[in-house]
Design a protein around this nucleic acid. Structure first.
Lengths: 141, 141
DNA sequence: CTTAATTCCTACTGGAATACTAGGAATTAT
DNA sequence: ATAATTCCTAGTATTCCAGTAGGAATTAAG
């Protein structure tokens, strides 16, 4: 029941990005150094985040990344889902074809867990996180 | 962010055990067949559950397993922890020696997630689950 | 128009964790 | 004695994840 390092590193990088470059383009290299993440690895992470329309980019020299929408509308849930696929604690939750579906009575438990987790994660926006935990004197790394 | 099959199978087996053999000894073989789990695998699972004082056993012929305490005092949290080790979404939560501890501002997020999850899991007892989802006409498999 | 900086995309590899099996020792009812 | 059962350790195979590699496409700037 652990998050992947892609998920946690995504949060780390986006938090720093929201804190320090909220309205500027920032390159992978710069942000990677700041967040103490391998640039190539962060590239992978940003590839997913862009695919899911959380960030946007400009190619070429002097290019970089920026947020695709207001920080207030980017939730922890959205970010983690982009990296983890889904946040469901068991595979069968979103499967229509679950061989045990007819008789499985533990499913409601996983469903309840899932609902609680996502309601929390959806309620946390990058904007709020920066307000609550941002202190520009220190970056996360 | 997935539970292990040990965790989910433990819940499945214990649910059936609570439903059908709440006060009797039941053998691995019988419960495994009922729950559609490999007997050898279920043995592994029960080894952990016994170690953590959730179930107790009687060895030898006509032996088997039974609950070590009232169903009302056995929570989903306890069961899953027995199989998963802990339920923390990131390793660093319980580590005193986290190299990023001083500067990590994402930790509060994981901490909040963790707290919500465990409060739910602690609030669900086997007794309650059987009341809510138990229907003796069908077993979970 | 050339160069350097950057994103984009696919593929690969090593390692760790997980799922599951194997086998036999110890115990106990009959 | 025997059969049924738990107990315990070890092993294997596979899947998943972390992280790397390399080069194509794009663009700013001189």
């Amino acid at each position: 029941m652990k998050l992947s390092t892609k998920g946690t590193n995504a949060m780390l990088a986006l938090f720093n990005m929201a804190l320090i470059y909220p309205n500027k383009l920032v390159s992978i290299n710069e942000l990677a150094m700041l967040s103490n993440i391998s640039p190539k690895y962060l590239e992978q992470i940003f590839y997913s985040l862009k695919r899911d329309n959380i960030i946007t980019s400009k190619r070429g020299a002097a290019g970089g990344y920026s947020f695709a929408k207001p920080l207030s509308s980017i939730s922890v849930y959205e970010i983690l889902c982009s990296l983890e696929g889904t946040m469901e604690p068991v595979k069968c939750l979103n499967e229509i074809e679950c061989s045990r579906a007819q008789v499985c009575r533990t499913k409601p438990i996983w469903n309840a867990m899932h609902n609680r987790m996502i309601s929390l994660m959806k309620s946390l926006s990058l904007e709020q996180l920066v307000k609550d935990y941002g202190d520009k004197n220190e970056t996360i790394n």
